[in-house]
Design a binder for these strands. Structure first.
Length: 787
DNA sequence: TCTTTGTAATTTTTT
DNA sequence: ATTACAAAGA
């Protein structure tokens, strides 16, 4: 491939391709593959030009993408290395590649570009970044690193960290970057804006100076390369076809990157589902789907509406929740699957009771022979996981928690990585400052402050300042001596940095005295830290083995990149059984973590107002409620056959007890879909086991359940968008257990006798009471007595 | 320089 | 309830 502009050869990195003559081997399916339905086949066989695929939950999205790629190779004769498939998670990328291997053979699949936005752009940026001043060995700063940069900028600009919290500043900066605005393009309407922009500018300068990029930069810088530099054409010429998964989760910058990338041929296929857009708070913009239609008015639009994953009742439950959403792309999800069993809605007394119920369900399922990895427990926020975890452990059930504190964010691991990154890129101040006194080597805050002040003043890196230490006036001889020793340590390590990455970790940890310091500490915690470091070393060996298997040379840079761009959802096995194998373990995770996964059994916990939808959703914040609703939709549609939704009467969270009513989403389940039960603790009956089956459960509203192929009928009538919570009054409302039903006569010390009108939720049981002569009053239940 | 004490904050987080 | 981070004391 010869660059049209410069006549140069494209340097790099097209992996061992055979010449672009017809691709070898041809396993891809023959004309409309029999196992595809009509819209699926349409999407698969679409050849050139923009394509928009609405893929409902469980509608065979991955299958469509992979078949489409196979089709492009086999029938359209597109060279595999000229196809780019972009996902959001490594796991999705891995799954896609695995499927493609089976479909097209390992050799062809290997040549494809399949990766996350970030990994793909990191790769492109390493190759082409020098055109905008990013050197190939750049490091990727994670959130903590970014925060450190902001903190230092605050200090240097003499700003009050209380008034401008680093976290908030960073959020501000990210918002700009996600929307593609540089510090000079962002508008300012106030002094505070000015300050924020000055910080943004400084932040950018610091990152560039350190040859570092943040997550946003990976995309943004490549987008700029594409639109503003001649190098952009080189990147563009790499790809003939671009496919994007989970398009509803792209942000403005990511969309810009895509648009620029396909500017010539417009062979852009985006697949998404506006109903599953759950990352708005992170900059994702569902409107990109609309923009896509605007930007590519001739785009072919395909809707995949048949759900193959879930039972009829589960699909109906999901529809009941999502159909109340505003601003949806019109579509009708349906299934031909069996109606299946009822969705179980279970009222528990408190979170421990709820956890006990979860354990009970897991035990039963296991007794029936269910593989534990087919069972998932979801919650809205991580804070809910602890009780569940304790219950699982007490019951001796193997489980795995996804998310939460991450391995690579542990202090000792970050320290080790910081050393490694300095070796690669000594200009990275954040890393250097992190470890300058770790383990303690007598370099105090004052010394560090003077050192960085000098570096800032002379517009150089801290590492450079160390090299020119004699020029620094205000450092005393003892301080200088210690700093020189540190510099020599780094130089010694750098001199050895040619050895294998995995050996490098050990070398760093011993020569810096890091492990020694931990051993000396000799506490349970320090032991755990040492173990974590050993795990780091072994993950490095894993990386080397994988890289070699993939035909790449393992490098420190490659490992560090992977560390920053990898999360632990990636470690889950795929629905089709590929991916990492694990002994059967129940998976515990947040609903966000569940997207893209599916399980035979799903337990959705904490279905209470304030918990899910999370927090006080004030009427003004309909956007947030909308997102919670989509989140609930995602959660429900993860289940194939068995879905439990639990809620509690009271729950301890963040140290306080809260009484919450059942989630409005429970009230939105269509008739005939769910059955409502209470745990034994709730009914007060002593039974063996907690999940008490007391004959025919109360089906909600008793009407016969309709076949899911007529989803329109399951949708609510206009005008009844939100089901009133009084639906639960005689069932599971916490207030019900007290003599405070609607209509009950009560007495109050000051207002006298009155009548209960309705229950309200204020953190503890409360009701609205009508007192003759006083009117309606909101009263805490504890201030009332039966009249 | 290290330890203690106090304070505030604690959604969600594919990268 | 827990924890992380910052400021003040030993």
């Amino acid at each position: 491939m010869v660059s049209l502009l410069t006549g140069e050869e494209d340097d790099e990195l097209e992996p061992e391709q055979p010449d672009p003559s017809p691709p070898p081997t041809s396993p891809p399916p023959t004309s409309p593959p029999p196992e595809l339905n009509e819209p699926q086949a349409g999407a698969v066989e679409h050849s050139a030009g923009p394509l928009l695929v609405f893929a409902g939950a469980g509608s065979g999205k991955t299958r469509v993408i992979t078949y489409r790629i196979a089709n492009l190779i086999a029938r359209e004769r597109v060279a595999p290395w000229r196809i780019l498939a972009v996902t959001f998670t490594n796991k999705a990328a891995g799954e896609m590649r695995a499927r493609l291997e089976r479909l097209c053979g390992a050799e062809l699949a290997r040549a494809l570009w399949v990766g996350t936005f970030h990994a793909t752009c990191a790769k492109l940026l390493r190759i082409h970044g020098s055109a905008i001043g990013v050197q190939p060995n750049f490091v990727i700063y994670d959130t903590a690193d970014q925060k450190a940069v902001v903190s230092r900028a605050l200090k240097d600009l003499g700003l009050d960290e209380k008034r401008y919290p680093a976290r908030a500043v960073l959020a501000h900066i990210h918002k700009h970057k996600q929307e593609g605005r540089g510090p000079d393009e962002a508008a300012s309407h106030s002094y505070v804006d000015d300050v924020a922009l000055r910080l943004y500018r400084t932040y950018e300068e610091r990152l560039r100076a350190a040859n570092a990029v943040d997550f946003e930069d990976l995309i943004l810088l490549v987008a700029r390369l594409l639109s503003d530099t001649p190098e952009g054409d080189k990147i563009r010429r790499r790809f003939d076809y671009v496919l994007v998964d989970e398009f509803q989760d792209t942000n403005a910058t990511q969309y810009r990157f895509l648009r620029e990338l396909v500017r010539g041929h417009k062979n852009l296929c985006v697949v998404g589902d506006d109903d599953q857009s759950i990352y708005r708070w992170r900059g994702a913009d569902v409107r990109n789907i609309r923009y896509f239609r605007r930007d590519y008015p001739d785009a072919t639009v395909v809707k995949l509406e048949q759900n193959y994953r879930s039972s009829g009742r589960i699909v109906a439950a999901a529809l009941g929740v999502i159909s109340r959403s505003n601003e949806r792309e019109p579509k009708e999800l349906w299934t031909a699957n069996e109606p299946g069993e009822f969705v179980h809605v279970v009222a528990a007394r408190d979170e421990r009771d709820e956890a006990a119920f979860v354990v009970d369900v897991v035990r039963r399922a296991r007794a029936e022979g269910t593989d534990l990895r087919e069972i998932a427990v979801f919650y809205r926020i991580h804070a809910q996981s602890r009780v569940l975890e304790e219950a699982m452990r007490a019951a001796n059930l193997p489980y795995q928690i996804i998310g939460g504190a991450k391995f690579y964010e542990r202090a000792e691991v970050k320290d080790a990585l910081a050393y490694l990154r300095i070796l690669l890129n000594p200009g990275s101040d954040v890393d250097l400052l992190r470890v300058v006194n770790v383990p303690p080597r007598g370099i105090g805050q004052t010394t560090v402050d003077r050192l960085t002040a000098w570096a800032t003043l002379n517009e150089t890196s801290v590492f450079e300042a160390l090299a020119r230490i004699d020029e620094i006036g205000d450092l005393g001889p003892p301080a200088k001596k210690k700093l020189v020793a540190f510099r020599e340590l780094l130089e010694r390590l750098r001199a050895e940095s040619e050895i294998a990455p995995s050996e490098m970790v050990g070398r760093v940890l011993s020569e810096t005295g890091y492990v020694q310091a931990l051993k000396k500490e000799d506490t349970a915690e320090s032991d755990a830290r040492i173990e974590n470091l050993q795990e780091l070393a072994s993950s490095m060996q894993d990386y080397e083995a994988e890289a070699e298997a993939a035909g790449e040379a393992p490098s420190l840079a490659g490992f560090l990149e992977r560390v920053t761009l990898v999360s632990d959802v990636d470690a889950l096995p795929n629905p089709d059984g590929t991916g990492p194998r694990d002994d059967g373990r129940v998976v515990l995770m947040t609903v966000h973590g569940a997207k893209g996964l599916e399980f035979e059994h799903v337990l959705l916990t904490g279905m209470e107002e304030q918990m899910f939808p999370y927090k006080g959703v004030d009427p003004g914040q309909t956007d947030e409620l909308e997102e919670e609703r989509r989140l609930a939709y995602v959660a429900i549609t993860r289940a194939r056959r068995h879905l439990f939704m639990t809620h509690t009467q009271m729950r301890q969270i963040f140290g306080t007890t809260r009484w919450n009513r059942p989630s409005r989403f429970l009230g939105e389940l269509p008739n005939g879909v769910a059955e409502h039960r209470k745990t034994a603790a709730m009914t007060g009956e002593m039974q063996f086991g907690r999940y008490v089956d007391r004959g025919p459960a109360s089906e909600s509203r008793g009407q016969p359940w309709r076949h899911p192929q007529t989803p329109r009928e399951a949708a609510p009538e206009p005008g009844s968008r939100y089901v009133d919570h009084e639906f639960f009054d005689d069932r599971t409302d916490p207030v019900t257990d007290m003599p405070l039903r609607r209509g009950a006569r009560v007495t109050h010390d000051r207002f006298g006798d009155g009548e209960v009108l309705k229950a309200v939720s204020v953190g503890e049981p409360a009701v609205v009471v009508f007192f003759p002569g006083w009117g309606e009053k909101k009263i805490l239940a504890r201030f009332l007595k039966p009249a």
